[in-house]
């Protein structure tokens, strides 16, 4: 453990969805440049933790500090901008716009940032190549395989050069070979760019791509409280 200030830190987060308590005092730190895997059984609150850390939802209690800013207190407009510029997200599915081609999907965040379309396409193309999906630019998500769609999603998450990428079960819908290709592409890329990654997964083989693992244990298994344990 180093003494450096973490890039993103959550302290004692609690969050309830209706009557289900998803988080009960979760504490986790993300250091700059590392890949952290958060594992746990389904329903252990992994996704909720990611949503809190990425500023997608506000925790009921506790704090989320990113780069000196309290995300849990930031207004939605600034959060949205932060997610657009400094964060990237990859979900199991759903983040690609079904009507847009692969290249337009990847170029979209750049266009939102005011980059001209031709330039955005050029940069999107480079990212598609990095993730090994060059030649699929004109396909729409419904016409791609799951692995291709996930690689396009990752290209989209990384195209703006974010500081942190949040990946929620990015290989959840893929077979092991496709999952290996997707993860290898991701790890290679973020090592090159120095991007910090929070990786949510229930798959140990996917978690092994990370530098470190934090395990979220379900409140049902242990009667006291959900406890986040950092495996060394």
């Amino acid at each position: 453990m180093s003494n450096e200030v973490p890039l993103l830190a959550a302290r004692a987060l609690t969050k309830a969805h209706g009557r289900t308590q998803a988080l009960r005092g979760a504490t986790v730190e993300l250091r700059a440049g590392e890949i952290l895997a958060v594992t746990g059984t389904s329903g252990s609150g992994k996704s909720t933790l990611l949503h809190c850390l990425a500023g997608i939802v506000r925790p009921d209690e506790g704090s989320v500090v990113y780069d000196g800013r309290r995300l849990d207190q930031l207004p939605e407009k600034q959060l949205s901008e932060l997610r657009r510029t400094e964060f990237g997200v990859v979900f199991q599915f759903g983040q690609l716009i079904p009507e847009l081609t692969a290249i337009d999907n990847v170029a979209l965040p750049l266009m939102l940032a005011g980059v001209r379309r031709t330039e955005a396409h050029k940069r999107a193309d480079e990212w598609l190549e990095r993730f090994g999906v060059r030649g699929q630019e004109e396909l729409r998500p419904g016409e791609m395989s799951g692995g291709q769609a996930q690689r396009v999603s990752m290209a989209r998450a990384l195209v703006t050069g974010p500081k942190v990428v949040f990946a929620d079960e990015p290989t959840g819908a893929l077979d092991s070979l496709a999952s290996e290709q997707v993860m290898t592409a991701l790890v290679h890329t973020v090592r090159e760019t120095g991007t910090t990654v929070l990786l949510i997964t229930h798959d140990h083989q996917v978690a092994a791509y990370a530098d470190r693992e934090a395990r979220l244990l379900d409140g049902v298994v242990r009667q006291d409280s959900v406890d986040l344990e950092v495996a060394q």
Binding site: R84, T85, F91, L112
Partner: peptide, 16 residues
Amino acid sequence: RRGLAAQAAAGVPQAV
């Protein structure tokens, strides 16, 4: 709805 929620989560502004 789910696709839209994912896009909003990715930072696509609601205005867009």
